[in-house]
Design a protein around this nucleic acid. Structure first.
Lengths: 101, 101
DNA sequence: TTAAATTAGACAAATATTGACAAGTCAAAA
DNA sequence: TTTTGACTTGTCAATATTTGTCTAATTTAA
């Protein structure tokens, strides 16, 4: 499930209109439509505003949004698994280094 | 090991100068220096040119580069593990969908 | 010290992103 | 069937970011 699909589902569950949510976010309805359909990428501040408008957990929504951005980077890669392995390794390294401080 | 550290190590192992490699890549020495130090991000075509100049495997170098970009997106996140889990899940989904075609 | 190698800073040019508007589609109500 | 309301699409100017290079440091090695 992409970020757009995710927030559309939430919005529909809550029976809110695009224009209602968009207005709370202080953006154009058309822009929110594009974000839900994945033709535009939301900015971080917009995700935060969205969390408020939808009464969802901000961090959780930001995680979905970030994951979606990474998936988009990897979706055309044949080696995505190998790349992800490298990422995990490196993140582990960074975490260790941080702890040493 | 970041992408920059990686290519610097390779270059030094091969005893090549920044200016030699940069010239082969048709870019300024200063730019390659920044890429190695991580203050500039290489473009895909530059990574490919680098692979040629360093006589390294292109795909492997591209993977290191891509992993580095993802690590940079995640390095300030407290939830990077959770995010990566979502990414893997989604990639798995995409792979399945592709196979269905 | 000198000379070569590397790095930093500043800049214009090129690219990309942004948000809005207007016009479009579509389905359901009148 | 017309109208209405919800959503979508295409386009555009404004803004922001990225790019590569130049020049001027700074570091390094002889």
């Amino acid at each position: 499930m992409t970020f757009g699909e995710h927030i559309r589902k939430l919005r529909e569950q809550k029976q809110l209109l695009l224009r209602e949510v968009a207005s709370q976010m202080h953006i154009d309805t058309a822009l929110l439509s594009k974000i839900e359909r994945g033709t535009r990428i939301a900015r971080k501040e917009q995700v935060e505003a969205l969390a408020i408008a939808l009464k969802e957990n901000k961090n959780e929504l930001l995680n979905v949004w970030m994951a979606d951005k990474i998936v988009n980077m990897l979706k055309d890669e044949s080696n995505s698994t190998e790349i992800l392995k490298k990422v995990e390794e490196e993140i582990k390294n960074l975490t260790n280094k941080k702890q040493q401080l």
